[in-house]
């Protein structure tokens, strides 16, 4: 495993915001990502969380497992509520608090798409983070439009999903917002740098975060980081930023522009129980789709 060399300030700054004893499954990627958010904003953030795993992770009434303001909202309205809060803060002259809409792939790509599109069009000053665990994990692993091709879910039980993943980052680029990025929980320093950049930009910022779910993807909890890393190393997940009308490839993904340097896709698939029934033709289809994605990146760099 190639290791990213950590820079010392990050661990000290990420301490004591995400409190121990939350209700997440062992190996959950959500608190890992929150720790990076904490390193950037400390407690100066307002998280707007629709119905998703995260609303369970922060816990029920008397307690709250994250030392920041959390607003629980209905499924479709994360971006709408966050834009309201952002405007209210602007009217009151509060500049040091960041509004963050934190939604899953169901609350972004399927149910929350309308309010997300509206907030992006109005260009409110907020960060929208979509943590992508590629199914409705909270309600029992149902297929979402962000589930990849061939993956098993409880609603695609026999042959797996027959459609490809919806690429929300590209939809957001088409909205013409000032900043769009993809990130992965396996590269916290890359995610940290992207959040720092997003913090300095006024307007709508969108970050698509890849987050492997041990329960729904059917793997041992200890492989969470390894699988997120393999997704980048096999070229199936590409880390990039979009600003000034151009795609800027991020450091961890740069070597994998050359297909010869990528690891075989099978290595990523065989660790996960949800890809147990993959046939060689389906693996070819996944490779073809990844290659198409890379072509799109190369054309817009």
């Amino acid at each position: 495993m190639a290791q990213t060399r950590p820079k010392p300030p990050l661990p000290y700054r990420m301490r004591d915001i995400v409190l121990p004893g939350d209700a997440a499954c062992p190996g959950c990627p959500i608190p890992m990502a929150w720790k990076v958010l904490a390193a950037v904003f400390r407690d100066k953030m307002i998280l707007v969380i629709p119905a998703c795993c995260s609303s369970v992770v922060v816990g029920a009434y008397p307690g709250n497992s994250i030392k920041a303001s959390v607003v629980h909202v209905a499924f479709a309205s994360a971006a709408a509520v966050a834009s309201g809060i952002a405007e209210a803060l602007k009217k009151r002259g509060v500049n040091d608090v960041q509004v963050i809409a934190w939604a899953g792939d169901g609350g972004t790509a399927d149910i929350g798409m309308a309010s997300l599109s509206g907030a992006a069009e109005r260009n409110h000053d907020m960060i929208y983070i979509m943590y992508d665990n590629e199914a409705y994990m909270n309600t029992g692993i149902q297929r979402s439009s962000s589930t990849p091709f061939g993956a098993w879910t409880t609603t695609t039980p026999i042959i797996g999903k027959t459609e490809h993943k919806k690429d929300v980052a590209r939809i957001m680029i088409a909205h013409g917002v000032p900043y769009v990025a993809t990130a992965s929980i396996a590269y916290p320093h890359d995610f940290y740098a992207k959040l720092q950049k997003a913090r300095r930009i006024r307007g709508f910022k969108f970050i698509h975060l890849h987050a492997p779910c041990p329960t729904g993807w059917r793997f041992d909890p200890k492989y969470t980081v390894e699988i997120a890393k393999l997704a980048v190393e096999t070229g199936l997940w590409i880390l990039y930023e979009y600003y000034d009308g151009k795609i800027h490839l991020s450091g961890p993904s740069r070597p994998y522009m050359d297909p010869a340097k990528r690891k075989p896709v099978e290595e990523y698939l065989k660790l996960q129980g949800r890809f147990k029934k993959m046939t060689p033709e389906k693996i070819e289809e996944i490779k073809k789709y990844a290659e198409m994605y890379w072509d799109w990146i190369k054309r817009h760099m």
Partner: peptide
């Protein structure tokens, strides 16, 4: 950095310590 429950504390002098009251044992 990667601990999902934030129970590990690494200090340059003493090395890592783990709070076993809250560690979920995920193995990350």
């Amino acid at each position: 950095i990667y601990c999902p429950v934030d129970v590990i504390r690494v200090e340059p002098e003493t090395g890592p310590t783990i709070d076993y009251d809250y560690c979920k044992g995920c193995g990350v």
